[in-house]
Simulated scan of single mutants.
Amino acid sequence: MQYRIQLSAGMAEQLGDVITVELSQETVTIADLRTKLKEQYLEVASQLQGSFFTHHQRLASPNELVLPSDPIALLQSGPGMETVVSTCGFFVITYDPINTDEVTSKVLDPSHGASLTFHGTTREYTQGQRTVLLEYEAYVPMAINTMKQIGDEIAERWPSSRIAITHRLGTVRIGEASVVIAVSAAHRDTCYETSRHAIERLKQIVPIWKKEVWEDGSEWKGHQLGGWNPHNTQ
């Protein structure tokens, strides 16, 4: 049986927008497709490590069963991007501008009647002081793991919800988004609760530092409990 897979980014440039793989077994999973791609397309095997399948326009788990007629796509992480997937979400740290539509698309589910997207942007004035820009740094391995921890907390508390968080590092200018959080659930009240939990916990536990750059100085700030300079080794 033949399975059509929609590609993106660098793999689409190399192989075309859609590729076809053929598998003979009676039941096929997402993991089977990944294995077959590695065997059939050696030239893009290294790119598969940072890529993730979608099935019916939602993130797919490795053991998920697929049919030849199903819409299947492969999302590719870009350069400088770290990504992790949990049972309920998709978590990304990147140096690139955040594509809100892309983040939101990760949580859409035909069984959900509500979705909500939160943007955290750089504001120009804070307590009367004019901000020129913000700079973000992170201990990426721990940051990505604690973002997944937030997803696990949400999965336990609101089992049917889905969440995607993308946080940007580097320079973020006035009006640009530093973080986008998208959630979906069967009902709107769960969306509101899940979104609030996600942003509050992100501020509390994810090791991302923000440098506020003003017209006359700058200051590193950490989580909500106080400032922290990531370059201070003491």
Rank of each mutant, 00 (worst) to 15 (best):
L48P: 03
T29W: 00
R188D: 08
G16C: 08
P230E: 12
T131N: 14
S69A: 14
T146S: 12
P97I: 00
A60I: 05
G50C: 01
S178Q: 09
H187G: 04
P62Q: 04
T29V: 02
M142F: 07
T117M: 06
S69I: 00
E124G: 10
T146Q: 15
H197Q: 10
V213I: 15
H187V: 06
A185S: 14
Q129N: 12
E137N: 12
P141H: 03
G16M: 11
E193T: 11
N63H: 12
F52T: 03
L133V: 11
V84N: 05
A177F: 05
H55D: 09
I30C: 02
Q149F: 12
S86V: 09
P230H: 10
Q14W: 04
I163H: 06
F52S: 00
Y3C: 04
R157F: 08
W214S: 06
K221Y: 02
E153K: 14
E64Q: 15
H187P: 01
E39H: 07
R201E: 08
G16I: 11
I154L: 13
V85L: 12
T190Q: 14
K38T: 05
L7D: 08
R130A: 12
C88E: 11
S111V: 11
E102W: 07
H167N: 11
S51E: 04
V103D: 00
V103G: 02
G151K: 05
F118L: 13
A9K: 12
D17N: 14
Y95C: 06
E137K: 15
V18R: 13
E64I: 06
M142P: 05
I154H: 05
I163G: 08
W214C: 09
Q127A: 14
K210G: 10
L67P: 03
A198K: 06
L33I: 05
M1P: 02
D70F: 08
L59F: 12
V183K: 07
L67F: 01
T29A: 00
V21F: 04
W158H: 12
Q49V: 14
P71H: 10
R173C: 09
L169G: 01
L65G: 02
P110H: 10
H167E: 02
R173I: 00
I93K: 06
I154M: 05
G50W: 00
G151W: 07
K106E: 03
Q14G: 01
N99Y: 01
E64N: 05
L75P: 02
L33N: 08
G16F: 10
H187M: 01
S161I: 03
T100I: 13
C88Q: 14
T87W: 08
G151P: 08
V172Y: 03
N145A: 14
L67D: 00
L75R: 05
K38I: 03
A182C: 13
I165V: 15
I150T: 09
A198D: 08
R34F: 09
I5G: 00
S184R: 04
H197T: 14
R4Q: 15
D32H: 11
T20Q: 07
G226S: 07
K38W: 00
Q6P: 02
T94D: 10
Q234D: 14
W220G: 07
G89I: 10
F118T: 01
W228D: 14
G10L: 13
V107A: 07
T20D: 00
S24Y: 08
A164L: 04
T190L: 12
E135I: 11
Q149V: 02
L169P: 04
T194D: 07
